[in-house]
């Protein structure tokens, strides 16, 4: 026996770690990733690989040479940012744009705030919105889903409108709910297959990586809000189910809005955050200039998060009783 180790209690840990959480999310993204490869083929592969490799590389370079701190790329957060960024891009986006997006996501979205844990905005969304504003045409032209693991799909792909864009132009040619659920529709590479995203979400809930509060409050708010609109005028406003299954809603609600660092920590904080995202998304989708509002809604609520963390406190033990007296 050597020198005794003396440290304060507790002396055990549940062996959770940052890396475990990050890689769990990566695993949860696999079904949606497979769907993306199936529908968009080579394009999806190229875009995602580029995004992940550049995110990891940029994080490493910035930590190593700019900040001179110990690189922490293996905690999985950069891989996750890369993957989420790719999921939010059209699968035929030029490679250099993907690299630029990754640079903005990691450099500005994450590292400029001081790295993991200190950033206010979801880095992947910072990258995506930067690209959307800089290259609106390329960012809103989606290839038609081929559904044959197609190798030729990157270059000359036919383009397709997204269901949300169709919504804006009237509700005539909407794809069926089944197509929306399975992902047979135009859109960013990772957002199309609602069923795969839901599967990932269930995995994350079971692994206790995320809690139900944020996704459920977002989805319920969107469902309720759009139900009211639909009920008021079904020819102009799409049904709640269509809204739930289209665009980045599932991807956003399950994977983007639940990012630990940029979402609130307490029960009511998370509910308010989720409801806020839900309302903003529907407002932007219905009346805004862009067909999709999820990214903006999440970024806006990211900005509110520090406030929610400061003012929305958990219920303290014995608190209720004090008020009763």
């Amino acid at each position: 026996m050597n020198q005794l180790i003396v440290s304060p209690a507790p002396h055990v840990h549940n062996s959770d770690s940052v890396a475990k959480n990050m890689y769990s999310v990566v695993i949860a993204l696999v079904p949606a990733y497979l769907a993306a490869l199936y529908f968009f083929g080579l394009g999806a592969l190229l875009v995602s690989l580029t995004a992940v490799v550049s995110c990891v590389l940029f994080e490493y370079l910035i930590q190593r040479f700019l900040l001179k701190t110990k690189p922490s790329v293996w905690d999985g957060s950069a891989i996750l940012t890369g993957l989420l960024l790719a999921f939010n891009l059209p699968s035929n986006l030029p490679i250099w744009m993907v690299i630029l997006g990754a640079l903005v996501a990691i450099g500005i979205g994450k590292m400029s705030f001081g790295g993991l844990g200190n950033n206010i905005f979801n880095p992947a969304l910072v990258g995506r919105v930067f690209l959307l504003i800089s290259f609106p045409t390329q960012m809103t032209t989606w290839p038609r889903p081929l559904g044959n693991w197609g190798l030729a799909s990157y270059i000359d792909a036919e383009t397709a409108a997204t269901p949300l864009a169709m919504m804006k132009g009237g509700l005539a040619e909407m794809p069926s709910h089944i197509d929306l659920l399975l992902g047979n529709t135009g859109g960013s590479m990772g957002e199309i297959c609602a069923a795969a995203l839901l599967l990932g979400g269930i995995f994350l809930l079971c692994r206790k990586v995320i809690t139900w509060h944020i996704p459920v409050s977002i989805l319920l708010t969107v469902a309720l809000f759009t139900a009211i609109l639909h009920f008021a005028n079904p020819t102009v406003y799409a049904s709640p189910l269509t809204h739930l299954l289209t665009g980045g809603l599932m991807l956003g609600a399950i994977f983007m809005a639940t990012d630990y660092v940029t979402s609130p920590m307490t029960f009511w904080g998370q509910i308010i955050y989720g409801v806020g995202i839900g309302i903003l998304t529907v407002v932007i989708r219905t009346w805004g200039a862009y067909p999709e509002g999820m990214s903006f809604a999440i970024l806006i609520m990211n900005a509110v998060t520090p406030l929610l963390n400061t003012y929305i406190k958990p219920k303290r033990f014995g608190e209720k009783r004090k008020k009763e007296n």
Partner: peptide
């Protein structure tokens, strides 16, 4: 120890409802 990633797990674990 690493940076706090603001996951809120310490809050959900605290039996006294503290942060």
């Amino acid at each position: 120890p690493q940076n706090c990633i603001r996951c809120g797990k310490c809050i959900s674990a605290c039996p006294m409802g503290l942060e």
